[in-house]
Simulated assay, not measured.
Amino acid sequence: MRRTAGELADGREIIYFDDTPDAPPRHAVDTRDLPRTQPLSEVRRDPLTGEWVAMAAHRQTRTYKPPADLCPLCPSTPGKPTEIPESSYDVAVFENRFPSFAQGVPDLPPTVDGMPMVARAPGRGRAEVVCFTSDHNTSFGQLPPSRVRTVVDVWADRTAALSGLPGVEQVFPFENRGEEIGVTLHHPHGQVYGYPFVTPRTERMLAVAADYRRTHDRPVMGDVLAAERAVGTRVVAEGEHWTAFVPAAARWPVEVHLVPHRQVPDLPALTDAERDDFAALYLTVLRRLDALYDRPLPYIAAWHQAPVRTGRDLAWLHLEVFSILRTADKLKYLAGSESGMGVWVNDATPEQTADRLRTP
């Protein structure tokens, strides 16, 4: 894989990751007349829950469902410059033009005016867009295994890079797919966030992992994985180094976890063999997800990694893929119990879902 870094017209970084042997050199210039961006992201700590909430009002003007011929993630063509100046690419990563978090955020007062109990801080971090292919009309699940393997290397590269940035406490690669999820650009792409705090979900998982280790002297994910593989009723697919299963306490109508057999904290820690095996297994899972309702499944694919500076001995890297589609034409709405109290009610048992996904 060849890695080439460049700069867009407004100073944002763009990086090309080429896996095609005869890919041309990347030297195209972004000809757009773009002003330098000044993100004004901030984070505020909820005094009732202790959780950080991000504020990024500048994102209200971001691109929203453009027609295919004006897609900003496709390669540039004469007269139609995009976010990617090249006429083709394999995988491209660039700083989001409308970031939730950014490095150049100005300083802020430490608390909200008149609310000394509400801590406030600049939203310093990073938000990147990862374009998986230059083909607008495909999906991640239709990529060849070699390209998925490249994307795994890209995720690892960006995790390492963002982990080294000032203020970043956790790196989160993810993909949103489908309008039902809220996707506003249909080109196959994902994102990587560098958060300036450890996320609430990760804090909770690390606390549970610490309690379990104190009691059992073993990692909780290791025991979960061993039990799921032994009983088999919720296993969807297996590889040499990874297992995909519907968790026994699944929240979402469709939910699959892809877990490596070896405890590693993050994507950079995976071996070449583990990355190869993941690429093959993930494509199998995505094909089965699309076959579930005989339509492209809207989903979120979320990587759970260790924070940059804490809990690295407790965390166990895994990918969570889930969908809000509970039937071919019905959505699972996060209504009173889920949204108000955080108590989930699932309309299908994990065993039922796994049984349907095991069918090729």
Rank of each mutant, 00 (worst) to 15 (best):
T4F: 05
A237N: 01
V168Y: 02
P144I: 10
A280Y: 10
D18Q: 07
A121T: 00
L297G: 00
L331N: 10
T20V: 12
I84H: 07
R288I: 00
V171A: 04
W316F: 03
W155L: 15
A160K: 11
D69S: 10
R44V: 12
S139G: 13
K80C: 07
V29G: 04
T159K: 03
T353P: 01
T150D: 07
R2T: 14
N137R: 13
F98D: 13
S134L: 02
P47G: 09
L289S: 01
W344A: 14
S88K: 08
A5L: 11
G11I: 07
Q305M: 14
A160G: 13
N96Q: 07
Q352M: 08
V264M: 04
P219K: 04
R97Q: 14
E83G: 14
G167C: 07
F17L: 12
T37C: 03
R36Y: 12
Q142I: 00
L283D: 05
A119S: 13
A248R: 09
R26P: 09
T31G: 11
L185F: 03
E169P: 02
Q352D: 15
G167R: 02
R149K: 13
P67I: 04
D266Y: 07
L258E: 04
L258Q: 06
D290Q: 02
P298Y: 00
H261M: 02
L292W: 00
M1P: 12
E7A: 14
L357S: 03
F132C: 01
V321C: 11
Q103M: 10
H136E: 04
W52M: 03
D272C: 00
T138C: 04
A5T: 13
P21C: 05
R309C: 00
T37F: 07
W242E: 03
A92F: 08
Y195D: 08
F140D: 01
T199D: 10
G123W: 05
P99L: 12
P81C: 06
V308L: 03
P350E: 03
G342Q: 05
R204C: 06
T215M: 13
D223Q: 08
A160W: 01
V198C: 05
P122Q: 10
H216A: 09
G141M: 00
A127D: 15
Y282G: 12
D33Q: 14
G164A: 13
F98W: 15
D217I: 00
G336K: 00
K332V: 01
V308K: 02
E338V: 06
A269L: 06
E274Q: 12
T37K: 11
K80F: 08
A249D: 08
T271R: 08
V264Q: 08
E338W: 01
G232N: 11
S100V: 13
A348S: 14
N137V: 02
G125V: 06
H257F: 13
P85S: 11
V236C: 05
P247W: 06
I84E: 08
P75E: 11
E7S: 14
D90W: 04
P81G: 08
V151D: 09
A244G: 03
Q305G: 02
